[in-house]
Write a protein that binds this DNA or RNA. Sequence first.
DNA 1: ATAGGCACCTGGTGGC
DNA 2: TGCCACCAGGTGCCTA
Length: 283
Amino acid sequence: MPELPEVETVMRGIEPAMTGYRIDQLILNRPDLRWPFPGGMAERVSGAKVLGLRRRSKYILADLDSNETLLIHLGMSGRILVSGDPLGNFVRDHPPIEKHDHAIFSMENGARITFNDPRRFGAMDLLDTALGDAHPLLRNIGPEPFGNEFHEDYLVNILKKKNSPIKSALLDQRIIAGLGNIYVCEVLFRAGISPKKLAGKISAKRTAPMVAIIRDVLGEAIQAGGSTLRDFRHSDGELGYFQHTFKVYGREDEACTNTDCDAKIKRIFQSGRSSFYCPKCQR
DNA sequence: ATAGGCACCTGGTGGC
DNA sequence: TGCCACCAGGTGCCTA
């Protein structure tokens, strides 16, 4: 489900219910997601106040006043829903607990934040805030697409050394943070580059514009509130809309949208995942 | 060091 | 209706 735009959307959605408020209680309905929760996590989080939320790549990070930071990853199927009234003006009924509701945060303001993840590829961890990005899961992540460290020289130079297809290079979170299967397909379509093309063999002239294209695609997706394919929802249950503007993802055998192109979108498998592209427009 | 493949897990869909 | 194969937005880990 969640690539950078979806994670950003979720973070913005839970922000008003969490930032500045105390977590009265964290209830864990199982001992683990992808990995076991850290020892005593429920107790360590319960009673702490959320100082602020951040996003790093596809991780949501909640800094607590206990000098610990709560790390959340949504995996493939993770959702976070806010219920109740974040302003605390009145207390509304919360929806019943559902299957796969693994973690439930009861906030002092009456809001409830529920982490639901059927496939359990998601993760939660608690880290020493002072450690910052030294956490093993964050240590090797590349620059944020909207950050200053991501620019044309950087991308050209790092891709030059890569022997893998550009598709897998852009999926590699050490090269750039936050892209996933959908947005890489869309980026490569806009860039007119075949997903099969070896990263190191693409000229700088064709590589450099991808910086702006990546920012455009991700920025537009955030504006649209992310993409809703199967189960992605905003934290208020609303759908995202970016999927309506996909040019290639999920459009196998459909006509290429470029004017003057009569080709059909193709699907191939690369490193175990589907790549969608126009064989005529992407070389 | 690097690139490729597998594994983790559940649920939805489409074919027979 | 039932059963089965296949597919899904991620990524750590193992292997060559």
